[in-house]
């Protein structure tokens, strides 16, 4: 089956109030071309579930986020995401902050179609008080231990970005870490994968071992070829993080004029124009 589609078609499917999971980790292999398309849309009141990076900063800046469920938000080389920081300090959205490991467990529960998974991480910390709807379960065995019943993080849609994919929805990571992209797909009703390059299925192993084809076509509903689609986050070995661009992005948080100029140049344009503007710097 040929599952090729475009950012525009994917975002046209999304609705206000949906729960959207975004793969990658921090400022690494984020489906940024899909995020940029959401910024161009009228979508609002989204619940975003992610190990956050600039995807979160941008969606917050645009006021798209009603609730954020997250393990952290960081630009890696810039530890604090300044736009996220600003939005948090303005109290602009509901912050469902989790321990990093709890987020994995919530996705895993959804992936395995379980209502919850027991988890010890979070107990005793204020993760419990900032998520007052979380309940605990007691072990039915002799230990009797009381654990958090981490609720399944069921997603309406998952968005991920891979190095390579074929048209049927198999996906390959060529960098060092698969992150949790597979769990985001398993946890979602509709799954969209952008990639640097679409290849023939028989060509996957020219660039990486069989172990790097971590996404299979049962996990994906649509494939988008998006060269530079993770920019400015890293997408090794295709490209590293664009640190200069990231610095420029970060510096606009404190300067409304700089933000307006950044937005006009890079975000109020098509994806092709974005990529052109990045190259012509």
């Amino acid at each position: 089956m040929d599952k090729r589609t475009t950012e525009r078609e994917v975002v046209a499917e999304l609705k206000d109030g949906m729960t959207i999971g975004i793969g990658g980790w921090g400022s690494r292999r984020k489906p940024m071309s899909l995020v940029r398309e959401i910024l161009r849309s009228d979508l609002k009141d989204l619940t975003i579930v992610t190990y956050g990076g600039p995807d979160v900063g941008l969606l917050c800046k645009y006021g798209k986020v009603k609730k954020l469920i997250y393990g952290f938000v960081s630009l890696d080389s810039i530890p604090l995401e300044p736009h996220f920081r600003q939005a948090r300090q303005a109290g602009g959205f509901q912050a469902g902050e989790l321990d990093e490991g709890m987020l994995q467990w919530g996705l895993r529960a959804a992936a395995h179609k379980l209502p919850f998974l027991p988890v010890r991480a979070g107990l005793g910390s204020d993760v419990v008080s900032v998520n007052p709807d979380f309940k605990t379960v007691r072990s039915p065995y002799q230990d009797g231990e009381e654990l958090i019943a981490m609720p399944a993080l069921e997603l309406d849609v998952a968005l991920i970005h891979m190095n390579r994919a074929d048209v049927s929805g198999n996906g390959q990571f060529l960098g060092p870490d698969p992150y949790f992209d597979d769990l985001f797909c398993h946890a979602a009703k509709r799954r969209f994968m952008s990639c640097e390059k679409i290849v023939e299925t028989q060509d996957f192993q020219k660039e990486g071992s069989v172990h790097t084809v971590s996404i299979n076509r049962l996990m994906v509903d649509g494939v988008i070829e998006a060269p530079g689609g993770a920019h400015f986050t890293e997408c090794t070995p295709d490209y590293g993080r664009d640190e200069a661009f990231q610095k420029e992005y970060a510096s606009t948080a404190k300067d409304p004029d700089a933000w307006a100029a950044f937005k006009k140049r890079y975000l109020e344009v098509s994806e092709a124009e974005y990529q052109e503007a990045v190259k012509s710097r």
Binding site: Q89, A95, E100, G122, G124
Partner: peptide
């Protein structure tokens, strides 16, 4: 306060899990 912090710092990150494990 967490719901509207005066200064957002790193966030919880892995600290809750680390300290309990």
């Amino acid at each position: 306060p967490h719901e509207k912090p005066k200064a957002q710092l790193l966030g919880m990150r892995g600290a809750p899990g680390n300290t309990i494990y």
